[in-house]
Design a protein around this nucleic acid. Structure first.
Length: 397
DNA sequence: TCTGGGGTCCTAGGACCC
DNA sequence: TCTGGGGTCCTAGGACCC
């Protein structure tokens, strides 16, 4: 039997939060965004959108289109608090929730909604209660898979409710432009359009033709798309709390720089932020990554694998500095960033290490085969490999 | 038009081991 | 000495999303 999956998307979430602390903003063209160098629109009210303002647009450009717009620098702590209130509200309806971002989630409501006669009326009441108690507006998509629910919630805004049944997939998806397909972005869409694929219906025809060249073009994504577009694919709502795999911070300079010391001073602050955040979350990472963006918008990533995972500020800063020294070759740099990658919980790491700590030095050779076997079993696990630990011991660490 | 900052996942090539 | 092929790990880059 098909599941009943909801995708709930908060309408202009940041703007709505601002309206709650300043009701006079309601009905006004509001822009939430950076207004510094290279500042862009993070999100904006529907009134601003009427003028052609949209997310990702440079703020100065948005103001050209809509000179009356009110620009607000985000109050991110407020958004975070309201986001929590939202998820707690949804939990009253179903415990099977997957947070997709601060302002959207998937909910498995199979059990609850299969007993309900008028699903639309039920969800209307949900929306009204959310608005009355938390002050937030949302659009809801209802479908048998997560992908369809996501597509559905996008169809009517604000306060929309859209149901996509499997038998309605062709009718409801096919007319949509290819760029609206979740996972097809601004690189892939033009390539498909050049091949004559303008709508989701065109893509469905192409995918379902089973041509080998098409299969090859999409790679691993082929079978996922084929399921999605035909109304199948994942309906598993993943309740696992979000567990970051990397923690990073970056900043755009006031003006481009080629100067090692200047860029390094930015790295110092960023490394501190990364270290603090990792410590707060109890995470340590195996890799330190330096990100540089040139004035021509070329991104340079360089990373180093550490002997031992860490969240120590000095280590992160030093490794990032070494990477900077090696890779700064006179280019004009506009942004730099530091990321700690391949994170694990500090507590997990201690346990892993203690297993191997029990080996005595003179047992090394005798246990080599065993360790190789363990290595094989640990493949995929992002812990230190036994051979690395042996190497360390041999080197007298 | 001229492009922030936070992430995730996939791919491809090289090093290395057996 | 010069060689094949399978497998894994690591790194860099790119596409995408909010």
């Amino acid at each position: 039997m098909s599941k009943i999956i909801l995708h709930i998307d908060l309408n202009t979430f940041f703007v709505r939060c601002e309206e709650l602390i300043n009701p006079s903003l309601e009905g006004q063209p509001v822009i939430i965004g950076h207004s510094g160098r290279g500042g862009i629109v993070s999100t904006c009210s529907y009134e601003a959108r009427k003028y052609g303002v949209h997310s990702g647009q440079p703020t100065f450009k948005a103001l050209e289109l809509c000179p009356n717009a009110i620009v607000i620098h985000g109050h991110y702590e407020l958004y975070s608090r309201k986001s929590k209130e939202f998820f707690n509200f949804v939990k009253q309806y179903s415990k099977i929730i997957e947070k997709a971002s601060v302002d959207e989630c998937y909910v498995d409501m199979t059990e609850q909604l299969s007993k309900v006669k008028d699903v639309v009326a039920y969800l209307k009441e949900f929306q009204n209660k959310l608005l009355q108690t938390i002050g937030l507006k949302c659009s809801i998509g209802v479908a048998p898979t997560k992908f369809l629910a996501k597509m559905a919630s996008d169809m009517k805004k604000p306060m929309g409710i859209t149901i996509i049944r499997r038998r309605d997939v062709r009718k409801m998806l096919d007319p949509l432009p290819i760029s609206s397909f979740y996972g097809i972005g601004k690189k892939t869409a033009p390539r498909l359009e050049a091949m004559g694929v303008k709508t989701i219906g065109d893509l469905a025809k192409l995918i379902n033709s089973d041509e080998p060249s098409v299969k090859q073009a999409f790679g691993k994504f082929y079978y996922v798309i084929k399921d999605w577009i035909n109304g199948y694919g994942s309906d598993e709502v993943d309740v696992e709390p979000w567990d970051p795999k990397s923690i990073g911070h970056s900043t755009t300079f006031v003006s481009d720089s080629t100067d090692f010391d200047e860029i390094r001073s930015y790295l110092k602050d960023l490394a501190k932020e990364v270290s603090d955040e990792a410590k707060e979350k109890g995470k340590i990472g195996f890799n330190v990554q330096l990100v540089l963006k040139t004035n021509e918008f070329k991104t340079i990533n360089r990373s180093v694998k550490l002997q031992k995972p860490t969240n120590d500020f000095e280590t992160i800063y030093n490794e990032a500095s070494i990477l900077l020294e090696k890779n700064l070759n006179g280019q004009e740099i506009r942004l730099c960033g530091v990321t700690l990658q391949n994170l694990i919980y500090a507590s997990d790491y201690v346990e892993q290490l203690s297993i191997f700590d029990n080996y005595e030095d003179d047992e090394k050779n005798a246990t080599r085969d065993l360790i190789r076997e363990l290595n094989r079993k640990m493949k995929g696990a992002k812990f230190m490999r036994a051979s690395d630990i042996l190497k360390e011991k041999r080197n007298g660490h």
